[in-house]
């Protein structure tokens, strides 16, 4: 937990962040974004700064398993959350299926948007497993990831090199390769409504 006194005038806090399974204690300016905390304080430069305003997706990380823009999250608000960055996806030398699919499909060129694309794709797969609809999901029936679904769901990650035509099949490959895994927890609890 943060040690901030809620009545205080202090503009800094000493806090603990859980990143890729490890806990880090940091003294941070409240202005420090989660992205800058990762990049400038923890040496985790995999998450990229492309715009610093939530307009490009290069900073995408997973917060409690959900994809978010780390540039718009103040680090002090991430206390108690499990943060996963691109550095935390592989299991030792074994790449995450999404990482492997990006290599196999040449789904990147300069590589700068790539960590965000990959974290976003990991989030997309979890969201699809949970049955979350997208703007192109038909009203009836579940979610079937196809090209149109992946294009829509990956739209929050800009790629100026124009690798989209390879990113889409890479995400579909990873979806096919992934073993069934639990979806992410949603606010909907069966039984409450009926």
């Amino acid at each position: 937990m943060t040690t901030t006194d809620t009545r205080s005038q202090s503009t800094t806090s000493t806090l603990r962040l859980q990143v890729n399974g490890r806990e880090h204690e940091l003294a941070l300016d409240h202005r420090t974004s989660l992205l800058d905390a990762l990049r400038e304080h923890l040496g985790l430069t995999g998450s990229k700064k492309g715009c610093d305003h939530g307009q490009c997706g290069a900073c995408t990380v997973l917060l409690d398993g959900r994809r978010v823009n780390a540039c718009l999250i103040l680090a002090v608000t991430a206390v108690g959350r499990e943060i996963t960055t691109v550095e935390g996806l592989a299991d030792g030398e074994d790449l995450h299926p999404v990482q492997q699919a990006f290599i196999d499909r040449d789904a990147f060129q300069c590589g700068y948007c790539t960590p965000g694309q990959i974290c976003s794709a990991v989030g997309v797969l979890a969201e699809a497993r949970s049955g979350w609809p997208s703007a192109v999901t038909p009203p009836e029936g579940g979610v079937q990831l196809d090209e149109a679904e992946v294009r829509e769901r990956m739209s929050g990650n800009l790629c100026r090199c124009g690798a989209y035509a390879n990113i889409v099949p890479a995400v579909l490959d990873a979806a096919a390769a992934e073993l069934p895994a639990p979806g992410i927890e949603t606010a909907y609890h069966e039984g409450e409504s009926r």
């Binding site: 430069t45 995999g46 691109v86 592989a90 790449l95 990482q99 290599i103 960590p115 990959i118």
Partner: peptide
Amino acid sequence: PPLTRDEAIEKVTGKARYAYEYHS
């Protein structure tokens, strides 16, 4: 042949370092 990029693993794991990512 369609060989994968030499730096592919660095780029997908976040290890590839860009200009701002040295000397913190």
